[in-house]
Write a protein that binds this DNA or RNA. Structure first.
Lengths: 337, 337
DNA sequence: CCTCCATCTGACACCGGTGTCATAATGTCA
DNA sequence: TGACATTATGACACCGGTGTCAGATGGAGG
């Protein structure tokens, strides 16, 4: 089985390789007859252009890099699946690059990544999408990028996020409507803008219902299950104990549920628990967690789609979009009595 | 900032680009003085070779593809992290390719993937690592590949797996030692060899302790949480009810736990539950699941490492290795009374 | 019928590296 | 010191595409 290159196609079709190239790229100025003839040869020889050669000539790699640093496996796979969908649609590939925001040399690391892999663009997921330093660096290096779930308001950054503040607000209202007033809150990782947004939504709901914010009910987590377990301990040791706990993500909520169950507390009768994200674990445990569903795949898909668009034909004004988060009630929250 | 190419390095160092190339690839027949001089220029100009150009010249892409079709997000991320570790070590990149084993045109899909992305090799994770059809296709196309957790015994396939049969045996023995004799078993997806291996370990343990296998206690799952929930229903409806359930993975075990808790069964007092894989959920729920820990990252890391070795310098005899699985006891299993 | 312009096509250099081979420089031994 | 092997280096083609530009072709208009 001989390799089929553009040369063999050209020879077989009796045209120059430039003409073949034109047909390949749907360029104008090819007569219908010639185009037809070349296309037929493509089929006959089962020709597939070599993306590496094309990449060299065009100085492109057709690869998008995806940066993440997140303890939630389900979040990561959802991000990947959205990104892959958009990439495949446009014949791009996805390079995954887990790395640490707090690493000693993030910029160097990314610089290295960019120059060794010749990425055409970068999708930044939290917490990278909130790193002004990184974004400045990319701008200066003239690298295309798109932000997922970023709080950064910046007219020339492609950005798709969901409305975390509103989601947290609705979830808190849901608890208030159930009669809860002592609602503990577990914060997320301080590097993520979601942490502040969710906390703001919680505060706004309390305020709106004239419930004073109690500092003692607020615990510092970092989105990991482990930090949730620590916070759970602090909260369940409180006296008086709150009647509800709102954790900034489902893993931490699961940790609260675990400890509560260990301590023979009945959920939701003795304690209501709510999370955020609608991770798989939220429905894999009993009672199922009331939570906020975010369209993670959709956010990433749109972000990558726009990124690729920007790469192929640079626009002056850039795509920015906020998607809705929505409340999902399960068994872990109930009326306070 | 001008682009630094091999030409500029050559000119700056006062040597030919071929000599620069030699230094780059650590080839012999370069005088120490010249090598030194060129290396210094590398540093000075911060030269990074263009992998695309190199790929074109060598007909290589320095990209490894990773195939998977698995409902477990944690399994996927563990696979990725092991694969990435090995890739980065050797300056390769990882292309992830989720796809369906049962898809109507798996071979076409892979063929497409290979020709459009010019992958240098493929890591197959279950269930692909058990697909003889796919392996035959890769052999015939002369594509390097490595099998992770495959049951296929094949002298010329790189393969790293863990001892699932032994793990299931030990877990079953653990239950038997606790006094259980009516131990239900939930099978995994029939396309995965792990399914049969784990079932075999279960059967061997029963046999060795002269406990007859009861067909009524065996349920058909497919590794998904959902299938676990279905099986759980069938098992908990049995009369008499078994005193223990061994699910072929932790997600299905979690489903059993959820249903048991919903039905007010106390775990482990009324029902012992065990899983397999040591997924994060096993320690995120209460009671924590007794399970078998598999070295997924390590398996994949070794597989990719050997794959890259095979690509760079083909060996006659090929690496094959079986890693140990190990029992982790948590709170979900206890003595039968 | 000739001019002019729009459309089509191909020759050729180029992207940034690597492989082949010839030649220059150096070392070894008789 | 000369013959020869060995090591070091560079010229040049090549990988498989794309960009540039010049030239060929064909139709409209005077």
């Amino acid at each position: 089985m001989k390799k089929v290159t553009i040369n063999s196609v050209a020879q077989y079709a009796g045209v120059s390789k430039k003409t073949v190239s034109r047909v390949l790229n749907n360029e104008p100025n090819v007569s219908p007859a010639t185009r037809e003839k070349v296309l037929k040869v493509f089929k006959e020889l089962d020709y597939r252009p070599n993306p590496i050669a094309r990449g060299l000539a065009r100085n492109k790699s057709f690869i998008i890099g995806c940066l993440y640093d997140n303890p939630s496996k389900s979040y990561i796979t959802r991000v990947q699946s959205g990104a892959l969908e958009a990439c495949h649609k446009h014949n791009y590939n996805l390079l995954i690059h887990p790395c640490e925001l707090r690493g000693e040399a993030l910029i160097d690391n990314i610089d290295q990544l960019l120059t060794t892999s010749r990425l055409d663009g970068l999708v930044l997921t939290p917490p990278f999408s909130d790193s002004r330093e990184l974004i400045e660096f990319l701008k200066q290096k003239n690298i295309n990028y798109a932000l997922v779930a970023s709080a950064i308001q910046d007219d020339d950054s492609i950005s798709v996020c969901s409305n975390d503040e509103q989601g947290a607000f609705e979830l808190t209202e849901h608890l208030i409507a159930l009669g809860h007033t002592d609602i503990a809150f577990i914060k997320g990782h301080p590097d993520h803008s979601a942490t502040e947004n969710r906390f703001n939504g919680y505060k706004r709901a309390l305020e709106q219902h004239q419930i004073p914010l109690q500092e003692r009910l607020v615990a510092e987590g970092n989105f990991s299950y482990h930090s949730g377990a620590d916070s759970a301990k602090a909260i369940l040791d409180l006296n008086p104990r709150p009647s509800a706990v709102f954790a900034s993500n489902d893993y931490m909520a699961a940790a609260v549920l675990k400890l509560a169950t260990q301590r023979q507390l009945r959920v939701p009768e003795d304690l209501s628990i709510a999370g955020f994200d609608n991770a798989p674990i939220a429905r894999h445990i009993w009672p199922g967690l009331t939570t906020i569903a975010q369209p993670v795949e959709e956010m990433t898909r749109q972000a990558v789609e726009q990124l690729i668009l920007q790469i192929s034909e640079p626009q002056d004004t850039v795509y920015q979009c906020v998607l809705e988060a929505r409340l999902i009630t399960r068994e872990s929250t109930a009326a306070n009595h």
